[in-house]
Design a protein around this nucleic acid. Structure first.
Lengths: 209, 209
DNA sequence: GAGTTCGGTGTACAGCTGTTCACTGGAACT
DNA sequence: AGTTCCAGTGAACAGCTGTACACCGAACTC
């Protein structure tokens, strides 16, 4: 049994429940079509109590972006650790990607649903975080291309392409969950090939100053 | 003045108006958050008359996919014609992409919004059309790689990567409309570089049987 | 121990939603 | 000319929505 005592703890608890419940609901519909009352109901509180935590559903959505980005950030860390131990960067990265998506489907679904689909504020929050993700990756790429005088612009461009490719795979992964697990492997293998193709392109690339 | 006479013509006219109005509304919000009454109101029709044309908003959405795919199909044709005359495939393709997005922003916005965001039936309709688009592209790629014994699987994989890259650019293009037109050029140039990077990768690729 | 803070409650209201039903008036068919 | 068809009407419905308001009672502060 989890004993809850302090008022602040209780508040944090229901706040988290509101976020969790919304994430669950996002699994089937878009944020814009989820009502404040519905979220409150599923969280076991009265509608008006919702305002004790967020001033609107949009505000909750923005908070949810932070929450959902955590698995993505974890992904970077895992992937970097994987590089050190595993050897094959690409294989390791794709493996980590598959694991994270399988472990946090709701978070990834939320991000892909609302990235272009929803309210402006949520969209911008996601785009900002994703840009951060891309520039982190381009830092890693800079390390790999050290000595080949890549411009930072070309590094960004390449990182952007890789992120686009990986996100497309993520979305494909999310669409097949009900079907055979074989599809998952197929998608991950294709993703690996795509990244390998890009890496091959990088080998032949010459930055123009 | 456009004179309308026949009953069938009148019906087709309001039907088209319903589709147009919905497309306009999608510019700001997602399909799921647009109400039947709102669409009917903007089309100058009483809510119940809506059912004379579509059995639900979801059904209208599926029709809208067809409607919105037309610019994309046009894009393929233009791009192919551009290849014949222009010489540089990639430059021509990206040019066509920029033009089509600028000319049909609402259609592209609808597709990107609802591709992952909305109702299952609409999502599936878009995914189906996009798969068609990808396989068309892989046919073109097959022609370009003739003699290098690429497997059809690898052709699909590459086409998929290219489509993902181009769609990501489309979405970026849609997000900047209010800002300076310089951003548009920057996005298109990055897109061109990305496709060139992939092409470079293709040159070094060896299909494994 | 008295007083304050504050998550959560319950009621209430105006406004919107999808869908029903019986209807109308003019084009289309015979 | 008489009849049928049918896109569009208008009123009515039950149900949902966000939000305002006064209130409670337990955890906190002093």
């Amino acid at each position: 049994m989890t004993e809850v005592k302090s008022r602040a703890e209780r508040k944090e608890h229901t706040r988290q429940k509101l976020l969790d419940v919304t994430l669950k609901l996002i699994g089937q519909r878009s944020l814009a079509s989820i009502s404040l009352r519905e979220v409150a109901r599923d969280a076991g509180i009265v509608p008006t109590a919702f305002y004790r935590h967020f001033e609107s559903m949009d505000a909750l959505g923005v908070e949810l972006v932070d929450e959902s980005m955590r698995p993505l950030r974890q992904m970077i860390r895992d992937a970097r650790r994987g590089v050190a131990s595993h050897g094959d960067i690409i294989k390791g990265t794709v493996e980590v990607l598959g694991i994270q998506v399988r472990q946090n489907p709701d978070q990834f679904r939320f991000l892909s649903r609302e990235r272009y689909g929803g309210v402006r504020s949520v969209r911008r929050a996601i785009e900002t975080e994703l840009r951060l993700f891309t520039s982190e990756l381009s830092v890693d790429l800079a390390r790999l291309t050290a000595g080949f005088d890549w411009t930072s612009d070309d590094l960004e461009m390449t990182a952007d392409l890789m992120v686009a490719a990986m996100l497309a795979s993520v979305m494909d992964l999310l669409e097949v969950d009900a079907r055979h697990p074989g599809d998952e492997r197929a998608i991950l293998e294709r993703s690996e090939k795509q990244l390998r193709l890009i890496a091959l392109g990088m080998a032949g690339w010459r930055s123009k100053p």
